[in-house]
């Protein structure tokens, strides 16, 4: 594999609070290569969005990166501040948010928004920027670009709007795209369109994509590798096919078993008991141990495991190594 475009090592985010310091992201490491989609999956509160925001430098104070590094093509960017990070953000990294309505300015035409972004980050003339804006819209499958470039966001449907947001994220030709739940607000049929588009653009443009979602099905279909997060930590990391067929971490296994699947034909769904602990109240040892059915003494008392205990795959003392019988 070539050198990773985006490399995150030991990333830790802290929020100083009234009852002590919270760590919504704790020692998270991953790489994304060009043309690769890394899926980041987890339930609400797992820290997946916070990880995305930390990578692109969009943490709201008082949250801050307290340890670790974020490298873009070998160059550290986690300490970059002010104008410099803003330049990187628009130019070299793009972000796609969940709600397309709030990420577009309702008072500007989409053409203006695209042209403005291009002019800000690329050294081109205004007519050239507009031409590129049209290409960008064409790229994301907006029909009749000529007629629609001067429309306002509210004149587009939900799916079309999300396409515009993707065009906006890609128009300055970034190397990395962070997509935070890009299809959660969309209907199934439109979701399929947007995911297919994301996959195509990733391959054609050699983008490194970080796809954040709670939907294991979306990950299975779209991502090349998957990172499973639990309570701010990395629970499992591996090629998507391996993780989905034989999950090593009991949490990953439970997550997939609790998704209803008629092919298993069971009357009752598998369930993980309880819910994710609050950040201010993490259990000692492995954060998953109170909900885990493979829990042992080691899990309760030893310091929490990281991915290295299972050869870089799962943060679990007793990983599952063969497909659990259903």
């Amino acid at each position: 594999m070539t050198d990773p475009v985006l490399s995150v090592q030991g990333l830790t985010v802290e929020i100083p609070g009234r009852r002590g310091i919270l760590r919504p992201v704790d020692d998270v490491s991953f790489d994304i290569a060009a043309g690769e989609i890394l899926g980041v999956v987890g339930e609400s509160g797992a820290g997946k969005s916070m990880t995305g925001n930390a990578v692109i430098g969009l943490l709201d104070p008082p949250a801050r990166i307290s340890a670790g590094q974020v490298m873009l093509k070998g160059e550290p960017i986690h300490t970059t501040k002010g104008d410099a990070i803003r330049r990187i953000r628009g130019k070299r990294m793009g972000m796609i948010f969940q709600d397309p309505l709030t990420s577009l300015n309702p008072l500007l035409t989409i053409g203006d928004q695209l042209t403005e972004t291009i002019l800000q980050h690329l050294d081109v003339s205004e007519p050239e920027a507009r031409r590129r804006a049209m290409t960008a819209l064409d790229d994301v499958g907006i029909p009749a670009v000529e007629d629609r470039i001067d429309s306002y966001p509210h004149q587009f449907s939900g799916g079309m709007r999300q396409r515009v947001v993707i065009a906006l994220a890609l128009c300055a030709e970034p190397e990395v795209v962070i997509a935070d739940e890009p299809t959660t607000a969309l209907d199934v049929s439109v979701q399929a369109q947007v995911l297919a588009l994301l996959k195509r653009l990733c391959r054609e443009k050699g983008l490194a994509v970080m796809l954040i979602t709670h939907d294991m099905g979306v990950i299975a279909e779209t991502a090349d590798r998957v990172a499973v997060m639990y309570a701010g930590r990395m629970a499992e990391l591996g090629p998507v096919r391996d993780v989905v067929t034989v999950a090593h971490h009991p949490y990953t296994a439970g997550l997939m078993a609790s998704t209803p699947d008629a092919s298993r034909g069971e009357a009752r769904l598998r369930q993980i008991p309880g819910s994710m602990p609050r950040l201010g109240n993490l259990p000692a040892g492995c954060p998953f141990h109170p909900r885990c059915d493979r829990v042992g003494e080691k899990c309760r008392h030893d310091p929490r495991p990281d991915l290295s205990v299972d050869g870089g795959r799962a943060a679990c003392w007793f990983p599952l190594t063969e497909k659990a019988e259903t």
Partner: peptide, 10 residues
């Protein structure tokens, strides 16, 4: 068969 795993604070 759901054991209650609420945090102790609750």
């Amino acid at each position: 068969d759901t054991p209650d795993h609420r945090p102790p604070e609750m």
